[in-house]
């Protein structure tokens, strides 16, 4: 491959992986924005999404001939199911803690993460599971860029989901309520906003997007396992910080940027692919030191 081809390929790889990061990062950012919680269980929600998609697809496969149709149905169903799982977690584990000190709810989030992770570990006996879709990987070229149908559809789907979310946040009453609660929960309550319902909706949307990312990763990589959420969770968190945690367009931007940074960072001589994670988390630290509010964050004195 020439360096131009490598550049294009890495650009696309970076965008695709970055869009996965972005979809997961949105969930971190939304939840942080509305209840100031770093939801550690979010990475496990992503993993649960992938498994639920796998199971639903397993049921659908005998009935649905067209591969993409099956994937889309599994995607939508899993988004709903896992979104509800997110709401249940919020109801059971987080809502009773909303008035408690911030550290308590953080520890609860860790506990939820452990529960989800270990449940799937036990159910799958720690085995890798094939995510069979029946899709072929026939490739074609766009200029010098080698492309498969799967990759193209996945990138488009991620961008469409991000766009729909943006519309939801900016153009609906619920989105407006979310933004209002992020600014001042108590006042919203006084104004008659059903705060708990809006928080539940936030968890639903965030978890559904993570589930979508999980299924897309399953389709793309072809393998799912209980541990798949761990690293992407950390990276999505990094993406959320880069974009400015609590700011939704920031999470999308941060995800895409982090994907590109990784793709090109590993091409720098002497860094290499085995240093990719070091590279990523060095960026996290740099951002936390020099731009703690992220790219799109405003400096606010009262964010406690």
């Amino acid at each position: 491959m020439t360096s131009w081809e490598i550049f294009l390929q890495q650009l696309f790889n970076g965008l695709l992986v970055g869009s996965f990061y972005g979809l997961v990062a949105i969930g971190y950012s939304m939840v942080y924005g509305i209840i100031k919680l770093l939801n550690f269980a979010h990475a496990d929600i992503y993993m649960c999404g992938a498994f639920s998609g796998l199971i639903i697809l397993g049921f659908l496969n005998p009935y649905v001939g067209n591969e993409w149709l099956g994937i889309i149905i599994a995607l939508l169903l899993s988004m709903v199911l896992v979104g509800l799982l997110g709401v249940v977690i919020q109801r059971v584990a987080y809502r009773p803690m909303l008035k408690a000190p911030r550290l308590s709810i953080l520890i609860t989030a860790l506990a939820v993460s452990m529960i989800l992770y270990n449940t799937v570990l036990l159910m799958t006996q720690g085995q890798y599971k094939p995510f069979t879709t029946g899709l072929t990987h026939e490739s074609f070229y766009i200029g010098a860029l080698r492309m498969t149908e799967t990759r193209m559809v996945l990138l488009l789907a991620a961008l469409v989901l991000m766009f729909l979310l943006h519309m939801f946040i900016t153009r609906t009453m619920y989105g407006k309520a979310m933004r209002a609660i992020a600014l001042d929960r108590d006042t919203c309550q006084l104004m008659g906003v059903n705060v708990y319902m809006i928080i539940a909706i936030t968890f639903f949307v965030g978890s559904a997007l993570a589930a979508a990312a999980g299924i897309m990763a399953g389709v793309y990589y072809g393998t799912v396992h209980f541990f798949m959420g761990f690293l992407i969770g950390l990276k999505a968190f990094t993406a959320a910080v880069i974009g400015g945690i609590g700011i939704i367009p920031g999470a999308m931007l941060g995800g895409l940027l982090l994907g590109l940074l990784e793709a090109f960072g590993t091409q720098i001589p002497f860094i290499g692919s085995s240093w990719r994670d070091v590279f990523t988390f060095v960026f996290l630290i740099l951002f936390l030191i020099f731009k703690p509010n992220g790219l799109l964050g405003r400096i606010e004195s009262e964010r406690m």
Binding site: Q9, V17, L231, S273, S274, D277
Partner: peptide, 22 residues
């Protein structure tokens, strides 16, 4: 010669290196 990171699913960096070395 390359090494994958355990815990991740995305090996695009390794794959690109291999493709470049052909």
């Amino acid at each position: 010669e390359d090494r994958v990171e355990t815990g991740t699913q995305d090996f695009s960096a390794v794959v690109t290196n291999i493709m470049a070395a052909n």
